[in-house]
Amino acid sequence: MSLVGAVNAAEAVVMGCSAGGLHALKVVLATLRPARKVPILVVCHTASDDLQGLARLLETCSAWPVREARERERPEPGVVQLAPSGYHLLVEPSGELSLSVDGRVSFARPSIDVLFETAAMAYGPRLIGVIMTGANHDGARGLAAIRQRGGIAIVETPATAEVATMPQAALTLAGADHQASLERMGALITQLIDPRPIHP
């Protein structure tokens, strides 16, 4: 069986959301069912200090386990890993995750831009970036960096997003390869992760 897109098959998915993000993550993770296991790295600004509580909550909706991202570990395929509150989450060129307490970027720590920009450098074209609901501009530069290196950019359709500011900012600065409503988002990411067989 030959595979379309296998050359640049996604090695990871990075997701960013802010205001309204908890609901958005629940909906997307509930409908995300790829056969291929890749790591999913998430920055959600509205996460409280109780990240374990958030992980447990999301896990009730998700087919994959959800936990906090840990420094010095390679991102685990088939696991949703959340940036700890108060720390930037970065992907090292070696592929390991790292954390920093450097200043806020786009008024946020963790910042979506920091995760996306470092992931773009580490994964190049084999990365899917997703920007969803939020009331600020974080993630727009990061999404542009992903596209610049040949990765795939998905933005939640602003018209149907709970808060349109963040997806709109991402579209304005970076553009997108795909726009999707929350309800279609999980299926779209699933399709992009799983390489499709060619039917002659």
């Binding site: 970065l90 060129p93 450097d102 450098m121």
Partner: peptide
């Protein structure tokens, strides 16, 4: 030094 944060700095 870890490279990703050093790069940004």
């Amino acid at each position: 030094y870890a490279r990703a944060s050093l790069q940004r700095r």
